[in-house]
Simulated assay, not measured.
Amino acid sequence: MKTRRRSPSRSKCSGLTTFVRAARFSALAAIALGLASCAIMPSSSRYPTKGDVRPHEGVASAHQLPIHGVDISKWQGDVDWASLRRAGTQFAFIKATEGGDHVDSKFQENWQEAKKAGVPRGAYHFVYWCRPAHEQAAWFKRNVPRDPEALPPVLDVEWNGQSVNCPKKVPREQALAMIDVMLREMEAHTGKRPIIYTDITFHKEILEGEFNDYPYWIRSTAAEPHVRYNNRRWTFWQFTTTGRVPGVKGDVDRNTFYGTENQWRMFVQSACDPRDHGRLKAQGVCRDMDPVQTASIGE
């Protein structure tokens, strides 16, 4: 039986084809890897180990601000708080309660471990619009310990159209009345003026022009806050829900404080936005600050 031999030119051509295919595959792999690394690339030299799976150019300015933190609930699973702290996390807001009968299953663990790791933390309550406000306030007070070293508590107000039992919206006046009750009760319990967390829709429909003596924590993941919120000064900004931070597996909300490192120290010490300290201190809302710090409130 005769063996069929390929001509030298065909062998050479086949080898060249294989090389080209391999080169193309390598190039595509490199591009894919590059895109993946871009998606989770560090957001700034200040926080080199933090990133975002879906970065948005509209919130680029958030990465330039010096004080960054996270918000955490059971959905983040087991959190390595020591790693979170080493990554430069300056604060954490931890879900505590929802409505009048739900406690986040990870709250007590997160609350204790964050303090142990040296991460300043505050507790937040998610409002359930089908439950009386006084019952929700009582539930928060029952489950969130008084801690003079904690950050101010947070009242999370947004519509929850995906809720099985309470997807409805309530009238504006009813919503404002409920918020007022809960803010006052949370302040009485913690000794600190609460922070109001909200999103674009709820702010537009309910909160514009309201509760201006309270610090606001606003959500805007695709644009600067002033683009989405009409005349609302903010203290905290949630700029992504797809952040990546050492110590947390998977996505985590990333947030930033509006001001400088010194203004952050003033906020922690006084439990008030430094811009409001002079006015609210007279009302007994804010704690005393170091005179040196006070002199540079407007820096």
Rank of each mutant, 00 (worst) to 15 (best):
V170W: 11
H226P: 10
F140K: 07
E185L: 01
K192I: 02
W237N: 13
E149Y: 03
P194D: 08
N165R: 12
A138V: 10
W139K: 02
K168M: 13
I200Q: 07
K192H: 00
E185Q: 14
P152Y: 02
L183Q: 14
N230S: 13
D199V: 08
G209S: 07
R184H: 14
K192L: 03
E149V: 03
Q238C: 08
W159T: 15
P145C: 07
W234V: 06
F202W: 03
P194S: 09
L183E: 12
Y197D: 02
R193V: 06
E149P: 01
L207Q: 06
A175G: 04
R172N: 13
G191R: 07
Y229L: 10
E210V: 13
D180Q: 14
P145L: 04
W159M: 09
I195P: 03
R228P: 05
L176C: 09
I218G: 03
V227Q: 12
L176F: 07
I200D: 06
W237I: 10
M178L: 07
Y197R: 07
P215T: 07
A137S: 15
T221C: 06
W159A: 13
T235A: 01
G161S: 11
V164D: 11
A177K: 04
A138C: 09
W234I: 06
V157A: 04
R146I: 02
Q136D: 10
A175P: 05
G209L: 01
R219Y: 04
E185R: 03
W234P: 05
W217M: 01
Q238G: 05
V227H: 02
W159L: 10
L183P: 12
R193T: 07
T190V: 01
R219T: 15
L183D: 15
I196K: 06
P145Q: 09
W159G: 11
E135L: 15
Y229E: 12
L176D: 13
Q162T: 14
T190L: 02
K168D: 14
M178F: 10
A223F: 03
D180N: 14
L207C: 05
R184W: 06
L151Q: 04
H189R: 06
F202V: 08
Y216E: 00
M182S: 09
V157L: 00
P148Y: 01
K169W: 12
F211I: 13
I195V: 15
I179M: 01
P153G: 10
D147L: 00
H203E: 08
V154I: 09
P225F: 04
R193C: 03
V227M: 09
Q238V: 00
